[in-house]
Amino acid sequence: MTAPQLQAVRAEFDAELAAAGRDPARVEEVRIRFAGRRSGVLRELEERLKGLPREEKPAYGKALNELKQYISERLEQARRGVGPAREEIFLDVTLPGRAPRLGSVHPVTLVRREIEEIFLRMGYSVADGPEVEDDWHNFEALNIPPFHPARDTQDTFYLPGGLLLRTHTSPVQIRAMETMELPLRLIIPGRVYRRDSDLRHSPMFHQVEGLVVGEGITFAHLRATLEAFVHVLFDPALKVRLRPSFFPFTEPSAEVDITCILCRGQGCAMCSGSGWIEILGAGMVDPRVLRACRIDPQRYSGFAFGCGLDRVALLKYGLPDLRLLFSGDERFLRQFGSEGAL
């Protein structure tokens, strides 16, 4: 018995194992024939080792051990279904994975959450209220009496029974001031409705408003709050400009502009060459509004601000058209993932 003989046994084993393929029963037959404990080929070879001359024993024993190890490894591989068939199952790692369907969150939801987070961190609570409102909460308590010219800019959808679809989220401010304990620090996002439809207007859109009422609330507080908001939401490098304006429910009132995020103030089509884009309206709560909510303006003051969530989404994501937001087009909706920017 010599090493070449062992080579032949190995070749025989390889052939039989290959023929057995991946059939477990046939692999088992091969195992019994070669590695069986009672009458396997390896057992026989071990028996022969005993009869060899002393000087041949070390070399033969070493070769036999190697063969035993080889056979046992190959049998193990065959049982696991790998080994001889390796070249048949080339793994193409460039094939697309079987992706689980991932959900996505609407861009308006993403910017709303981002804004809520900013204010939750500053101690604001997130409030809500009805979308169907009455004239008192939507207009009169906000210092917009019937036939007030300010109603012109808020074309209203009317419902039976003197009800209407809220034209802004401000009625929630009124409800909060009427019912909640002072001091107040609220952020109020939600759907609003105006009877207007073109490239820049949708009859349904979203606003978020903030309201702070307490003792000693000042215009300086409003300014700092707006700056903190804009800097976290967009970019700390942006300038914030407050421009005097008019809203019936605030006095003084301001339009809030930020450096155009596209041209950085150089002037471009988006900012009509001015270098600024209007982003918020704000002001100190008008004492008439406080009084309408039975709050004493001698003791308390407050500020409020509001902006269009859809417009923020347009700016943040560079969307061309407001109506895309409400199109339900899944190619659009699935572009934003489920978490948004951190």
């Binding site: 809520e116 204010f119 939750l120 961190r121 500053m122 101690g123 604001y124 609570s125 997130v126 409030a127 809500d128 209220g129 001091p183 620090r185 952020i187 702070v212 307490g214 609330i217 000042t218 215009f219 300086a220 507080h221 300014r223 700092a224 709050t225 700056e227 903190a228 400009r241 407050l242 421009r243 005097p244 301001a254």
Partner: peptide, 23 residues
């Protein structure tokens, strides 16, 4: 000039905020 009014954040006189209503 609104820009000459200093920016001062209101003191944190309330606890942490939370989501109210159906939020």
């Amino acid at each position: 000039g609104y820009e000459r009014v200093p920016a001062v954040l209101p003191a944190a006189d309330r606890g942490p905020g939370r989501r109210l209503g159906s939020w």
